[in-house]
Design a protein around this nucleic acid. Structure first.
Lengths: 96, 96
DNA sequence: CATCTAATTAGATAATTGTCTAAATATAGG
DNA sequence: CCTATATTTAGACAATTATCTAATTAGATG
């Protein structure tokens, strides 16, 4: 499966926080990094993991790089989790 | 956060497959292990991770241990993912 | 109680990961 | 072209993790 990288990306609390912040719109690498008690290279690493997993988009604008939430992949993850909740015990005639 | 262990549990593909199988109802440790190309101790380790994360329930019945999906925690994860999709850019008057 | 089956625990090991510091790249503006 | 700012890349290191084999626990049954 390809979304394995997305699940692995979500395993880190810092990365989940980053995603939560991006819910309010795009942010630059620097602005994001400034919100965490962690060095910029470490944050940069987290950005790369999120980008490689397809969870965020990135674009350079001058000296800065803007990161944004990629809702498509988040939707896939949501669908996966919701699927788990669909009772599959009687696969023929859904309604018990 | 406490659900950190749940996210970490989901990071492994074998564990995600286990959860998917439990969608069809409870299974014994042995029955589950039989479905994977992996030793029983390794599988047992994955069961423990899932149980510690609250993603599965377990109960002994004689010699066997039955594992089942804990939908409550799965619901929490679903809610977290869906929250990410709610646009929060204009927090006062929700409807753009 | 001896033994069989089901499952876990213990302990080792290789691979992956998260973090850091130092160095490099990229862009903007004198 | 030099310097300042923004960000990433490189390389090292400690911690965590996934897996294995061997040993152990727990229950059933003759």
């Amino acid at each position: 499966m390809n979304s394995n990288s997305a699940f692995k990306a979500l395993a880190d609390p810092t990365r989940r926080e980053i995603l939560a912040m991006l819910r309010n719109g795009e942010m630059t690498a620097g602005a994001l990094a400034g919100r965490f008690d962690m060095t910029k290279p470490s944050m940069s690493h987290h950005f790369a993991v999120l980008r490689d997993a397809g969870l965020v988009t990135s674009r350079r604008e001058g000296q800065q790089i803007w990161y944004g939430l990629n809702t498509t992949v988040v939707q896939d993850l949501t669908a996966w989790a919701m699927d788990l909740l669909k009772d599959n015990r009687h696969p023929k005639g859904k309604r018990s």
